[in-house]
Simulated assay, not measured.
Amino acid sequence: MAAIHRPAHLTHHAAKIASAACLEKSKAIGVPMNVAIVDASLYLLHFERMPGAKLTSVDISMNKAFTAAGHHAPTSVYKEAVWPGGAAFGLNNSNGGKFITGTPAQDTEVAQAGVDAVLSYIKKNSQLKAKL
């Protein structure tokens, strides 16, 4: 019987670690943000809104998380392709309008801080388990 490969699932604990790192980076760069983290099923796992973050960006942050997780790529990869004449023009109308393209540089920087924090957490836990 063949083994079934299941993708790693982000735990709520790991999502909180990522969120804390995102909030810390957001504070460091002086841009209050909404932080949305989804799991492998693309459903919201954790959300935090910083004081001063744009209220209109609550849904945008959730949709960016949906798009990035669903395509295993940051939303910035679609920036050029979604303009009129681009290979993916109109793609932002898919998935009930939840597909969000493009991203300010700060979004990428803050999201990467969250990814780095989770990877560091995984590495530490792996090293600890190896010692046991």
Rank of each mutant, 00 (worst) to 15 (best):
K98W: 02
I60H: 08
T108N: 09
L44A: 10
G102N: 04
L91V: 01
F89T: 11
N92Q: 10
K123I: 07
A15Q: 00
G90P: 15
A28R: 12
T11L: 01
G97W: 02
S120I: 01
E109F: 04
H5T: 02
A87K: 13
L44C: 05
V110Y: 13
M50K: 06
E80Q: 11
S120N: 15
A18I: 00
A53K: 07
R49A: 14
G102E: 05
G90V: 02
D116E: 14
G70M: 08
N63L: 00
T108K: 02
A53I: 07
Y78H: 09
V110S: 13
A130E: 15
A21I: 01
F66M: 08
N92H: 09
E80D: 15
G96I: 00
H72C: 11
A117H: 05
N125H: 06
S57A: 07
A130W: 10
A14N: 03
H5G: 03
G30N: 11
G102P: 00
N95A: 11
S57L: 01
A14D: 05
N93M: 06
I4C: 08
A73M: 12
L23D: 04
A15K: 00
A36M: 08
Y43W: 08
L55N: 08
N95D: 13
V38C: 15
H71M: 12
S61Q: 01
A65V: 04
S41L: 06
G96F: 05
L119K: 08
K124Q: 15
M62T: 09
P104C: 03
M33E: 12
V115M: 06
P51E: 12
A65K: 02
V82I: 14
F47T: 04
A87E: 15
N95Q: 07
G114P: 07
S126A: 13
S126Y: 02
S120R: 14
L55A: 06
P51G: 00
H12F: 01
A40Y: 14
D116Q: 14
K124A: 13
I4A: 14
I100W: 04
G86D: 13
G30C: 07
F66I: 01
S26N: 01
Y43G: 03
F99L: 12
S94M: 04
